[in-house]
Amino acid sequence: MIISHPVLGPRDAQEFVYLGDASLLKRPDWQAENAGEAFHDYMYQRDNPAGVHRELWFHEQGDRSWLVVTRDTTTHEILKVEMAREVVLSGGTSL
């Protein structure tokens, strides 16, 4: 696959390391009353859609950026690529 890095342009997916569901960006509050449950869900409850999926990829052999890649898991079409840091800072973590 080719991932179009927002800064570096199209790069071979071989340069990246895959982590998984981008919902990992939305880490629960450790002090919340139900923190145990919330962290359990955060860690283990994942959607596994056949279709559009937001995922985290690390550009290990590149600029060491974590990216949020929106990809159709059935066709491998990549619809959007964002810098994860910017997604979080702009509050875009309600995935």
Partner: peptide, 18 residues
């Protein structure tokens, strides 16, 4: 060494970018 660095970057960029 490699996976810990990756994890640290994950924490830095994705969990506490502020």
């Amino acid at each position: 060494a490699v996976s810990v660095y990756r994890h640290m970057e994950f924490v830095r960029q994705c969990l506490c970018p502020q």
